[in-house]
Design a protein around this nucleic acid. Structure first.
Length: 594
RNA sequence: GGGCUAGUAGCUCAGCUGGAUAGAGCACCUCCCUUCUAAGGAGGCGGUCGCAGGUUCGAAUCCUGCCUGGCUCACCA
């Protein structure tokens, strides 16, 4: 569609010049796709021209329409409604565009080579004290998909995660395991490693709460009790031991983290996400300090009497922000400064995208400003892909309190539902066990992923576990189903179809489909620019709806003309290709039968 | 209190760089499987686009104020 607009701009400017004798600024040209109820393909909004033409909107539109039909070969007809000039574009224009799209192997993608710019996409970034939950699923799906979309838009991409493998929260599950675990391991318990560790994280919190209430009985205030609970102090002691590389603590830490990593691997694999590089907080948390010192020398930061280092961002309408504690230890911001700079050294990236929840909007705002004050010009090319939290109807999910929707459980549940629906419909005769399992997996995860990705990342979403995710309507399975149906057509067809339609006119539904197909490259660019898989998800839904109408209204094998038949088979397979391609960018696979 | 962000049908969401009568899905009610997969299609019901002003030929979309929700403003990460 963009192509078409570009081709029309010059004739329109010429037309205004020829008819009204004035130069019309190109940036004021305003197109929109013609609404379905009107005749035409593309509409020029003529109000902006009226100021130059000094005639009524209707007369201006008439004059322009008449000129364009006469001068532009592919403009076949026009009609005017109020200030809108609807142009009818010839079938041959659509068919030619379609033919060139059809022949491309990676239709819609911009090819990259080593000279293409590089974008780093960070996502997931889990803590190693508990398993992944629904919030992580949104993060992972978004990060993975945005990375794939950016790649398709013509940029090299590296996916990275930073693993938050150190800190007091890690020590909490370590301590609880040490005290109450009695040597339990994933092998001995049959529990997935991350779930086992998470169990002790919850256990810690229970013990901690118990101790607090005991202290309250002893007459402490709540604040005192929270600070003085023995188990917390023990955890803090453990953290200090870890930082001074106490062998026993480090061994336990290594051992338990390994359990978690192997658990995460299982979850990542099933979710279908991957990473090109991992960063570990335990290795990077000290990196930022030297840059803070440099900033201090440069005079862009300042030091307080107690030795703490700050940056003054009040002239940017932000506050003063701590960068280094009085005792010289790092805070979150220090680490992030260090990792960002390290990544630029590692990859020399052109852009970096952080997939992190919107609760950290302020943090990233500050981070980018600090980097830019340190003189890193690439700071302006860093972007926080901020997404809304996933809440339950009962409110926020809290790992410590066990009110989370676990990632592994949720995936399993979706696949089970897919299985029972499929069995009820009974269309999978002749599949062996392995094939069946794979189809259920595809559908169950497709439903889950589409459900999450179709909504605008920045919006908060509510997930109600008791109302299961739909498999009908605007859903992943709906799109997958259409793909399966197209595959079924192809199995039946002897030839793979042809592209051109020599004689007869395009059926209105064929034309609509062509137009939607031709938007695909623009949609990829738009989704990449906005970091929004939702744009792509909604586009795919529109395409599929359009195809289903075509499928219902237009006979394929039942048609008289062999040319029509071949054309429609080709058109169907093209739709199938676009579905499969766009769903792949969302991390969703599509089945050949379902 | 300051900052950021959202508020569109009973529910879940599109549309937001201003354009024609605000679109889908779910739910509810009708139809359509001797044409290619009914996880589909056709139709009906359902809206003061949070409220009030403003800018404009034209506002769900831009501006201002207000209301409501979420996040944030830590020597936590």
């Amino acid at each position: 569609m963009k192509d078409l607009e570009i081709k029309l701009i010059e004739p329109i400017v010429k037309a205004v010049k020829a008819i009204f004798g004035v130069d019309f600024p190109v940036n004021q040209i305003n197109f929109q796709t013609t609404r379905k109820e009107f005749d035409g393909d593309i509409t020029l909004v003529v109000f902006p021209v009226v100021r130059f033409s000094k005639k009524s909107p209707e007369q201006t539109a008439e004059d322009l329409g008449e000129y364009l039909v006469r001068e532009v070969q592919f403009v076949e007809a026009y009609n005017v409604l109020k200030g809108f000039l609807n142009l009818v574009i010839s079938d041959s224009y659509w068919l030619e565009s379609y033919a060139s799209a059809y022949q491309k192997s990676d239709y819609g993608f911009v090819k990259t080579d080593d000279s293409a710019p590089l974008t780093i996409v960070e996502y997931s970034s889990p803590n190693t004290n508990k398993p992944l939950h629904l919030g992580h699923i949104r993060n992972n799906l978004l990060g993975y998909s945005v990375a794939e979309i950016i790649k398709a838009s013509g940029t090299r991409v590296k996916k990275v995660q930073i693993i938050n493998d150190r800190g007091i929260h890690i020590c909490k599950s370590m301590l609880a395991w040490k005290k109450f675990g009695q040597g339990e391991t994933p092998e001995s318990s049959g529990l997935k490693g991350d779930h086992l560790v998470g169990k002790y994280y919850v256990r810690f919190d229970q013990e901690y709460k118990k101790e607090i209430s005991n202290l309250l009985v002893e007459g402490k205030t709540e604040e005192e009790a929270k600070k003085e609970a023995p188990i917390l102090k023990e955890a803090q002691q453990m953290l200090r031991a870890w930082e001074s590389k106490d062998e026993e603590v480090v061994d336990l830490w290594t051992r338990m983290n390994q359990w978690v990593y192997s658990g995460f691997d299982t979850t990542y694999t099933r979710l279908g996400v991957d990473f090109d590089a991992n960063y570990y907080e335990s290795e990077t948390y000290l990196l930022g300090k030297k840059y803070v010192d440099i900033g201090l020398e440069k005079g862009v930061f300042y030091q307080k009497e107690d030795g703490s280092v700050w940056v003054d961002l009040t002239d940017e309408k932000l506050d003063h922000k701590l960068l280094l504690r009085g005792d010289g230890t790092a805070v979150y911001m220090t680490q992030d400064i260090g990792t960002a700079i390290q990544r630029h050294l590692d990859f020399d990236f052109n852009k970096m995208v952080y997939t992190v929840g919107n609760e950290q909007d302020y943090h990233f705002n500050v981070l980018f400003k600090v980097l830019s004050r340190l003189g890193y010009s690439w700071a302006k090319d860093c972007r926080h892909l901020s997404y809304g939290m996933v809440d339950l109807p009962s409110g926020k999910m809290k790992s410590r309190e066990g009110t989370v929707v676990d990632a592994d459980d949720l995936m399993e549940e979706m696949v089970t539902t897919a299985k029972s629906i499929s069995e009820e419909l009974g269309k999978l005769d002749g599949f062996d066990e392995e094939q069946l399992a794979s189809v259920y997996e595809t559908i169950g995860l497709g439903a889950l992923k589409y459900f999450i990705l179709k909504v605008d990342p920045k919006k908060r979403m509510v997930f109600n576990p008791s109302e299961s995710i739909d498999f009908n309507g605007h859903t992943g399975p709906f799109i997958q189903y259409t793909h399966a149906r197209i595959c079924s057509l192809q199995r039946r067809a002897e030839s793979s179809g042809i592209v051109l339609k020599p004689e007869s006119e395009l059926h209105p539904k064929e034309k609509e489909l062509l137009k939607v197909i031709l938007c695909y490259p623009d949609i990829i660019q738009e989704a990449a620019k906005d970091c929004s898989p939702a744009v792509l998800a909604n586009y795919t839904y529109d395409l599929v709806k359009e195809y289903n109408q075509f499928y219902q209204q237009v006979p394929i094998f039942g048609t008289q003309s062999e040319d029509d038949k071949a054309f429609r088979i080709g058109l169907s397979s093209m739709v199938g290709k676009v579905i499969s391609s766009s769903m792949c960018l969302l991390g969703i696979t599509v089945p050949e039968r379902m």
